[in-house]
Design a protein around this nucleic acid. Structure first.
Lengths: 343, 343
DNA sequence: AAACAAAAATGGAACGTTCCAATTTTAATT
DNA sequence: AATTAAAATTGGAACGTTCCATTTTTGTTT
């Protein structure tokens, strides 16, 4: 802000004083003509400070360019407003969307969100979380990497640290958990396919290693089992575009008369639709395709994708409810909704 | 861990003691039989502590379950190991990829990375960064939101806070900046299209509001201008899938004889290819398509996309070089490479 | 105007670490 | 064994805030 035009005059070789001294509550107090305690009160928005004092302090803060020191505050008060959002894979479009929603909602709670990415690696997860503990974060919102141990998760929770797990359930853990209603979502979507009159339906994508796979497959089977005249198949695959392509080609080879496919998620569905397009099979009219997630791209595709929508805001809201201590329940299933488009 | 089975016996109403007392260096020192100063030395990996002392302290840490308190350390030492990575839009696949790479490299530097997302909103950016200042972060790695003021960015840089801007250049600012070589990338790609013998080439996607648009378009025009027999067109659009579709349809309408298109980025190219597929035009053999970014999906598409690759690791490395203080230069152009696939 | 209660303001201690100057221990040399 | 230098260790002060018990100010009632 201040330009030292006089620096040319004296001692050119002497480097400028590294940093005189940072501005503290004491300085603000002096300028405002009050005590440091009063400044502290104002900083924290206490009711106990008079309007007059508040004005003086606010003006002094402006004047001095004071910046609140959270390290000092956190140390003395032994409390932090940092919330760590630990994401399994930020390069996954749905994870990124969820991370952004979580960050926004945490911020609306008046807390500071810090995002970290584990790349689905437990080792990395352990390291990062250990470091975050040193920063005394107030809460962990964590989408656990595969092979996360229940005990580890359990011990993360302390008197001063809240833990909420999202999207994935670590079996054996009692940590509060927020999940989309995977089972009902796939159930509803599968029923919709059956209602179209389809009698040959496949579930495509994903595999046992993924914790939500079971729930989604269960929803599929439940729907199928209600209709004895409907036949079903299951084709596992990697949960990416390529996986969807491969699984769809296998499916067509094995069941050429297939009428529709329920996909593990949107990304797999993209692969499926791509493959179908190459075979000159029209998604929707020739073979029904439904995804899961409702990524932003899904409605923009050449054949807009029908899908089960997980509202990231709903998940974030549910997490924040728990952070606020409103919901002590340990498992919150967030409702999902079927979005029927052209596929 | 500990189950208070005895809680049924005594005083049901008395809630358990909130938290006895956290373990500090003093406790570790007492258990290890050394002074707190020695413990501090060991904690910071100092050479000055004897191996014997180190062993004793390490054992005591294990025994007591001590957790380093970074708030206290940061306050006393007036230095932090927190690096803030401020991303403009985490839901953009390339941004997410870059964020992950940056986080990884920052961590390899022995620093703690914290990721925040501004959703391309200057207001949000201002708020978040102000909050991060209160945490005394050591450095900001920032992809500036549109309309970021040069002065604001400039003032972010202080004696104790480094600032590096990435991907976007804020004009009027002297903050060190790491960019992909947009101009050369598009130039090289366009030359490759010309070498295929194409004489009718369009640049598709993006618009003036995006800072790197100029550089890419400049590369395009430079290549075109070297060949008087080649005609060119420019079609602006939103930088998403839908934008690509729209721009391509306009292009085909206006220039039915178009031979190839250079796209602003991969996402736009996806839209282009989707539209071409619908028109039964084969990307690559009928109309050449080149993207920019090299997203993971690009090589997996039904017609693998030719593109200019920006290696996220290269960007991250360049940023870290600056953080380490190795490169005082204010503008680092990271080389990009043309990846020729089928399109 | 005196008496009192409520509100506002205050100074010192404390949080857990690192820095520093001083002391103790160890090793090397005579 | 005495001397000296180097290495290792140490206790107290300091970082900038919040907490707490106390004091001062304000406002109300008698």
């Amino acid at each position: 802000m201040v330009n030292h035009t006089s620096s040319l005059n004296k001692s050119l070789k002497a480097s400028p004083q590294q940093d005189k001294k940072s501005v503290t509550v004491h300085d603000v107090a002096r300028v405002a003509g009050v005590s440091k305690s009063t400044v502290s009160l104002v900083l924290r928005g206490s009711e106990k400070a008079s309007t007059k004092a508040k004005d003086k302090v606010l003006k002094a803060i402006e004047e001095t360019g004071y910046v609140y020191n959270r390290d000092a505050a956190a140390m003395r008060s032994k409390s932090s407003d940092l919330v760590a959002i630990v994401i399994n894979d930020l390069t996954n479009p749905y994870s990124a969307k969820l991370a952004v929603a979580l960050e926004k909602h945490v911020r609306q709670l008046g807390l500071m969100a810090t995002l970290v990415n584990t790349s689905e690696d437990v080792e990395t997860q352990t390291q990062i979380v250990a470091k975050l503990k040193e920063y005394r974060v107030k809460a962990f919102i964590i989408c656990p990497a595969p092979n996360t141990e229940a005990q580890w998760l359990e011990e993360l929770q302390t008197m001063q640290t809240q833990v909420v797990s999202i999207m994935r359930q670590v079996s054996g853990s009692t940590i509060p958990c927020v999940l989309p209603d995977n089972e009902k979502g796939v159930y509803t979507a599968t029923k919709a396919l059956i209602k179209r009159g389809h009698k040959q339906i496949a579930f495509i994508g994903g595999d046992d290693a993924i914790s939500d796979y079971h729930q989604r497959l269960l929803g599929f089977n439940n729907a199928i089992n209600e209709h004895p005249d409907v036949s079903s198949w299951v084709f596992n695959s990697a949960t990416n575009r390529q996986g969807g392509r491969l699984a769809m080609s296998m499916c067509l080879e094995k069941v050429p008369s297939i009428e529709s496919v329920m996909c593990f998620n949107d990304i797999v569905a993209y692969g499926v639709m791509e493959y179908l397009a190459e075979q000159n099979i029209k998604p929707g009219s020739d073979i029904g395709v439904i995804g899961f997630d409702d990524l932003d791209d899904s409605k923009l595709m050449s054949v807009p994708l029908s899908t089960v929508k997980i509202d990231a805001d709903d998940i974030a809201k549910a997490v924040c409810e728990i952070l606020k201590g409103d919901k002590p329940e340990s498992l919150k299933q967030v409702p999902v909704s079927l979005i029927e488009r052209s596929s």
